[in-house]
């Protein structure tokens, strides 16, 4: 079942088209990723879905509510973890959650139990009465996730949930996200510009560039659409290898002293190729394999590498802010 539906959703800022007529459907219970470089329009798209920005044209429904006509219905159905911190640093974790509970109409008698429940999910029970200012970046993120879950949303929006986090904490946040989907059945919509994040977390990924969806599928299907994995064999006799692997490789390409083969499931095929080479006594100097990543997919569709994008001013600011906050801890 589709829980979110966008049709022709567009947002313009003056002459700039940030989101350009995007239509897509998100299924209930999946982790859906919006992947793209900084400035691609991911955050603007999310902002419209969470009713923070009004679309210039087009429409969208979230949990059956129209984002323009029924914003309160949308707001009650969703939890949001913003890209930038959005906690009150001078309040304790508990007070932040309590304020949120009040704003989302959670009954007084349920508030305490709910708060304890969500802090347990993100393992912050022992810091619940500490002022947020004393929290590390990772703990703040976890608290924000907890806050996003407090009113039992059907859908959780995560805008760059792991930006500015160290690799270990990032892994932690990934685990929470997976748990939410598996144990709580929450639909998760996330944006990211980390390829490996989209790859390992998302059920389906939409690649967005310049405000347009340029590809949408499961990460595996997107990678497969490039023609499979690549095995590179270094050998003085590439022609013999080419002859030998007929029926295994989909495509072959001979370079000077080596041959590259496009195959499905390179990790299994590589052994087979080794066996064949040994059988036929073809000399192999080296063999390597390369699995296409979502980076390659992005490169394929846009002609650019996602990592070449310059760091935007806002990112630079965020990095500085985090460094500064880190210095105070």
């Amino acid at each position: 079942m589709d829980i979110i539906e966008l049709s022709g959703l567009t947002k313009k800022f003056g002459p700039l088209v940030a989101v350009d007529s995007v239509s897509l459907k998100i299924r209930e219970g999946e982790i859906f990723g919006l992947l793209g470089p900084n400035g691609a329009g991911k955050t603007t798209a999310i902002s419209m879905l969470v009713t923070m920005k009004k679309p210039t044209s087009g429409s969208a429904c979230v949990n059956g509510f129209d984002i323009v006509k029924e914003p309160d219905g949308v707001r009650r159905s969703i939890g949001i973890v913003f890209q930038d911190p959005s906690l009150d640093e001078e309040l304790t974790a508990y007070e932040n959650l309590e304020l949120h509970a009040a704003m989302y109409g959670i009954e007084r008698k349920d508030r305490r139990d709910r708060i304890l429940e969500v802090v347990r999910i993100v393992e912050l029970e022992d810091r619940i009465n500490d002022i947020v200012k004393t929290f590390s970046g990772g703990m703040r993120r976890r608290l924000e996730i907890a806050r996003g879950l407090l009113h039992y949303p059907k859908i959780l929006f995560l805008d760059e949930p792991t930006i500015g986090l160290d690799p270990q904490t990032r892994k932690h946040v990934w685990d929470y996200i997976k748990t939410l989907k598996v144990e709580h059945g929450i639909t998760i919509v996330m944006t990211t510009h980390y390829m490996e994040e989209a790859d390992s977390l998302c059920d389906r990924v939409a690649i967005i560039d310049n405000g347009k969806i340029i590809a949408l599928d499961t990460p595996d299907a997107l990678k497969d659409s490039l023609g499979g994995d690549i095995i590179i064999v270094r050998t003085p006799e590439p022609r013999k290898i080419e002859e030998a692997v007929k029926g295994i490789a989909r495509k072959t390409k001979i370079d000077d002293g080596s041959i590259s083969l496009s195959v499905a499931q390179a990790d299994k095929k590589i052994l087979k190729i080794m066996d064949i080479a040994r059988e036929r006594k073809i000399e192999v100097q080296a063999i390597s394999m390369h699995k296409p990543t979502l980076d390659d997919v992005f490169l394929h569709y846009t002609g650019r590498n996602i990592r070449e994008e310059a760091v935007s001013g806002k990112d630079a600011m965020r990095i500085r802010h985090n460094a500064w906050a880190g210095g105070r801890r």
Partner: peptide, 12 residues
Amino acid sequence: FGFLKETLVAPV
């Protein structure tokens, strides 16, 4: 500090 956003998207 971002807290404003939290209040702006609340159903109040």
